[in-house]
C-alpha cells in the first residue's frame, strides 16, 4: 500500500477542469515532486489531497494503517501561507501543534525543536507581522512539521525565494527526507532534480509523465548527435533510418538530431558510413539531452 493513492481524481471549477483524471501514488519514505508550469493544476491537486477542497470525481485513499482523519498525518505549507500576524512565530507554531492534538507541553517542546531546525529561534518572540518573506516561509515549514506528520506537503516551497533562500530550503528538504515523506510542487525542473526521488509532470490538469528520477534520466537523457551540413541530409537519413542503433531522429532540412543508446557504436557507424563521408558536414556534435529538454517539450506543446 502506498501512503496516498488517487484514482481518476478530477476537479472542475465551473466549465474549467483544473485537475483531470489524475492517478498519483505517493510512496512512504520518498520525496515526490509534482512538476508543471503555472496553471497545470498542482495547487488544486494538493488542496484535494489535504481535503481543503473536495474532488468532483475520483477517490483519494490514505494508507489503511493510519486510521481516521488523514489531516492528522499531513503537514501542509500552502503556496502563499497566511498567518495570524498578531501572534509571535513561537505562539503560532505552538497553536498549530495544539490544533493537531499535541498537549501544550508537547507543543512547546516540538515548537522549540522546529524553530531550531528552520533557524528562527532568534526571532521566535517577534510578531509575525515583522517577518520577511523568507522567514515566513520557514515558519510555514515549522508549523507543517510540528505534529510529526507522515507526509509533508509543500506547495512551491522555494518559488518565492531568492537563490540563497532557495538553496537553504532545498538543503533543509534533503535533511527532512531522512525522517518523513515529502510531496512538493514546483515549476522548476532543477528543484525537482535536486531533491526528489519520484516525479510527476503535470500539464493542463493531467499527469503527462511519471516515474522515478533515475528512470526518467535513463529514459530521457540519451546521447545525442547534432549534425549540420551544407546540403540536405534527407538522402543519407533515408538510408540509415530504422537501423537499431538509432533511438530517435528529427530532421529539419540541413539539421539532424539523432538520439542513440550507445555513443561509441553510433559514432563509429556514422563516421565509417561512406555516404556520410561524402556529405559536406560543418557541424558534428555529441551531447546528452537533459530532462530540461523533455520538460520543455512536454510543457510547451
Amino acid at each position: 500500500m502506498e501512503l496516498i493513492e488517487t484514482r481518476s481524481l478530477s476537479k472542475r471549477f465551473g466549465q474549467h477542469i483544473a485537475v483531470d483524471g489524475v492517478n498519483l501514488s505517493i510512496k512512504e519514505g520518498v520525496c515526490t515532486a509534482l512538476l508543471g508550469p503555472n496553471g497545470a493544476g498542482k495547487t488544486t491537486t494538493l488542496n484535494l489531497l489535504t481535503g481543503l477542497i473536495t474532488p468532483s470525481t475520483g477517490t483519494i485513499e490514505f494508507d489503511q494503517s493510519y486510521q481516521g482523519d488523514r489531516r492528522q498525518y499531513i503537514g501542509y505549507l500552502p503556496q502563499y501561507p497566511k498567518f495570524y500576524e498578531w501572534m509571535t512565530g513561537e505562539e503560532f507554531v505552538i497553536f498549530a501543534g495544539e490544533l493537531a492534538g499535541l498537549t501544550s507541553k508537547q507543543a512547546k517542546q516540538r515548537t522549540k525543536e522546529m524553530l531550531d531546525l528552520v533557524g528562527l529561534n532568534d526571532n521566535s518572540k517577534k510578531k509575525i507581522a515583522g517577518y520577511s518573506g523568507g522567514m515566513k516561509q520557514r515558519l510555514g515549514i515549522a508549523q507543517a512539521l510540528v505534529h510529526e506528520p507522515k507526509l509533508v506537503i509543500l506547495d512551491e516551497p522555494v518559488s518565492a525565494l531568492d537563490p540563497l533562500g532557495r538553496k537553504e530550503v532545498l538543503e533543509m528538504m534533503k535533511r527532512l527526507k531522512e525522517h518523513t515523506s515529502i510531496l512538493f510542487s514546483t515549476h522548476v525542473l532543477h528543484d525537482a532534480e535536486q531533491v526528489s526521488d519520484d516525479i510527476f509532470i503535470m500539464k493542463d490538469g493531467k499527469v503527462v509523465i511519471e516515474g522515478s528520477l533515475t528512470h526518467l534520466q535513463n529514459t530521457y537523457q540519451k546521447p545525442t548527435f547534432f549534425i549540420e551540413a551544407e546540403d540536405k541530409l534527407e538522402g543519407w537519413v533515408e538510408t540509415i533510418k530504422g537501423q537499431d542503433w538509432i533511438d530517435q531522429y528529427s530532421l529539419d532540412g540541413k539539421n539532424l538530431t539523432l538520439t542513440v543508446d550507445n555513443v561509441e557504436e553510433a559514432r563509429k557507424r556514422i563516421l565509417k558510413d561512406p555516404m556520410f563521408q561524402e556529405l559536406e558536414i560543418y557541424k558534428f556534435e555529441v551531447a546528452k539531452t537533459s530532462l530540461e529538454d523533455l520538460f520543455m517539450k512536454v510543457t510547451e506543446s
Partner: peptide, 13 residues
Amino acid sequence: NHGTQILVLVKPV
C-alpha cells in the same frame, strides 16, 4: 479573505 483559516483547517480540526 486573508487565507489565514487554511492553516487552521488543514490541521485535524
